Simulated assay, not measured.
Amino acid sequence: MKPVVRVGCVESLSVDLLPKLILRLRDKTRQIVTILATSNSLHRELLEGKLDIIISSDSTAELSGLNRTLILQEGSLLVLPKSLKDSNCWKSWKGLQFCGLPFIKYHHASGGGKLNDVFMRTAGISVANQIEVDSNSTMLSLIAQGAGWTISRASTILQNKGLMNEILYLPMPEPLLVRKVYVLTRQNEPSALMQEFTQLACSILKESVAPELIKIAPWLKQDIFVLDPTSGVMVDMTGKRADER
């Protein structure tokens, strides 16, 4: 009998990866159930047995009882309102601190929030903030209306194509912040499920998603890697391994 598969996914890959993945799994399953949530919520539901497999962006999570496979690595970028289009403030952290607009935070418990918080704390970057959200769409809508700026990813821009012309997305000052995306299952789940799911996800990322990310942020061409399931290594779109950088 074909299985029922319950899949959880972070919002940033819910438009460009998840639908294609569902269509490719449709003939292999009896039913597919999907939910979207922040990484911390997905981890909890996976551990509680409410989900079978998740796509998570929480690179800091070290949870026991789970199998984890890295499938995507992407450099970050700045997202700013168009009111700053003639400003050079985005070229340095000091400039951003005094750009006249606050930093908008991703919710501190989300994968993006944890990633940004750890990065800024480690790099010693301090910026004023007033607003904290856990939705990419809300984040970009606020920025489009001039409420502030943030650190995000090209996958977030891709997910919100309707806002692409209403915001600026530019290279971030050094050091570059990298986001990692994982497939996770419980250790007692059949390994074949994770293997097939991972192979399909990586195929879609390589064929459809990564090329679009590079169109959005061509300066990140050498900072976007997808897992090659055959060799088990992360490679960019030219086939260069991440460990060769």
Rank of each mutant, 00 (worst) to 15 (best):
T122A: 07
G95K: 13
V183T: 12
K105I: 03
T156F: 01
A123H: 13
V133R: 01
P102N: 05
K161P: 03
L163G: 06
H107R: 14
E189Y: 07
N165E: 15
I125T: 07
L101R: 08
L115W: 03
F103Q: 11
V183S: 07
G113R: 00
A123M: 13
R179Y: 12
I151D: 07
A154W: 03
G124S: 06
L176W: 02
E189N: 04
L96E: 10
P173D: 01
L96P: 09
S135Y: 00
A154Y: 02
K94F: 11
V181N: 07
H107K: 10
D117C: 06
A144H: 01
V133W: 02
I167L: 11
Y169V: 04
Q195P: 06
V118A: 06
S141Y: 02
F103E: 12
F103V: 09
S126M: 13
Q187G: 08
I104E: 12
G148T: 02
E196Y: 05
T122D: 12
V133I: 13
S152D: 15
G100L: 08
K105A: 07
N116R: 13
A192E: 15
N136M: 04
A201N: 10
L140F: 01
N129Y: 14
K94N: 11
V178I: 15
I151S: 05
L101N: 14
E189H: 06
T138A: 08
Q199P: 05
V183Y: 03
N116S: 15
M164H: 03
K114F: 09
A192I: 14
S92V: 07
T198W: 12
A201D: 08
M120G: 05
K161E: 13
D117G: 05
W93G: 07
A109M: 15
R121H: 08
P173V: 00
S152Q: 01
L170A: 08
Q130L: 12
R153M: 15
G146V: 07
H108I: 10
M194Y: 05
M139Y: 00
V118S: 09
N136R: 01
M164N: 02
M120H: 09
P171I: 00
M194E: 14
T138Y: 04
H107C: 08
T198G: 09
M172Y: 01
K94R: 11
A109E: 15
N129S: 14
L142R: 00
G113Y: 03
V118P: 04
G112V: 09
L101F: 11
P190E: 12
G113T: 02
G112S: 11
L176K: 06
F197D: 10
G146A: 04
Y106R: 05
Q187K: 15
P102G: 07
A154I: 05
V118L: 13
N165A: 08
S191A: 10
G162L: 10
K105Q: 14
I157L: 14
W149Q: 02
A128V: 05
K114G: 06
H108A: 12
E132I: 04
P175F: 00
K114I: 12
L101Y: 14
V178T: 14
E132N: 01
T198R: 13
T156I: 01
S135G: 00
E174Y: 08
S141I: 03
I104H: 11
E196V: 10
Q195Y: 10
I104N: 09
R153D: 04
G162Q: 10
G162W: 03
T122E: 14
V127C: 10
E132L: 03
L176I: 05
L140M: 06
T198D: 10
S152N: 02
W93E: 12
A201E: 08
